[in-house]
Design a protein around this nucleic acid. Sequence first.
DNA 1: GAGCTTCTTTAGAATTATTCTAATTATTGC
DNA 2: GCAATAATTAGAATAATTCTAAAGAAGCTC
Lengths: 146, 146
Amino acid sequence: MTTATQAPRHPAGLAQKLADSGLRSTPQRELVYDVLLNKRDHPTADEVFARVKPELPGISLATVYNCLETLVQCDLVRAVNFERGPTRYCPNLRPHAHFHDEVTGETHDVDLPETLFAKLKSELPPGFDANAVEITFRGKAQSPTN
Amino acid sequence: MTTATQAPRHPAGLAQKLADSGLRSTPQRELVYDVLLNKRDHPTADEVFARVKPELPGISLATVYNCLETLVQCDLVRAVNFERGPTRYCPNLRPHAHFHDEVTGETHDVDLPETLFAKLKSELPPGFDANAVEITFRGKAQSPTN
DNA sequence: GAGCTTCTTTAGAATTATTCTAATTATTGC
DNA sequence: GCAATAATTAGAATAATTCTAAAGAAGCTC
């Protein structure tokens, strides 16, 4: 087996970003990142585990937790927590808000103008210095796809 | 014992609001609500339990969970979840944001102009109808009190 | 104001989500 | 190839919450 028989699935990111942090690229990390990219529905660790298992039957839940944590550390994925319940994971790195549909339970990414995030930060009272803002909407969405 | 020997600690709310939902006012519910009002530091259920115990030594943790849930149902208290970890409780019902100090771990309420909340909702793409917005900042705060 | 009904609390068991531990396996550098 | 390091694994341990079944109030009815 020579090189380059199989193109990397992550256009140009994972292996490099991992290396930047002194970490290795492994099949488990690749695959976990893959399933996040391929279905961006903010899955829980359990759900990621279920999606990854068929392709890598030997993988353990602990490894899925490890990989997710690693990806979060490398700034490739964001951990999201609205309401009690398991942490969910989101590979969308652009600044965006989340819309939580109270009927279906689904979570949608919502792009908001950068200026709004800036505006929000500027509204903080003196003495408060924010480096991140999280915005979560709750309500009903008429599903755009069905 | 005649009436009005002891003023109710909740200016005019708890018993009534509970009754509105067909629920009873109990010492446990009163006390849990009390500790939330008296120290507004977004305690966890465990912390509420610890604060309530000295006054009502027989109370159980399950009851604290029950009471908190009841108060949330009656719209007297908000449950707050940023980041994994136990749910925290907040008796501030005005629309406000939370500022999570990454150094101290403390959470501060931040009042923002109503117009901002409206503005945010108006920025949602068509088809999304939000009835609530939650905003969480993360960063450093120079404590205003020390 | 005794008895019935309903609501509430309680202790402890059960469940869920996550982290830890120690052993095994893979990778890398020499 | 071999040592050193990193990553994965299974299972135990922990933390947060919910459930369950029994016991304890509080209202109502007559």
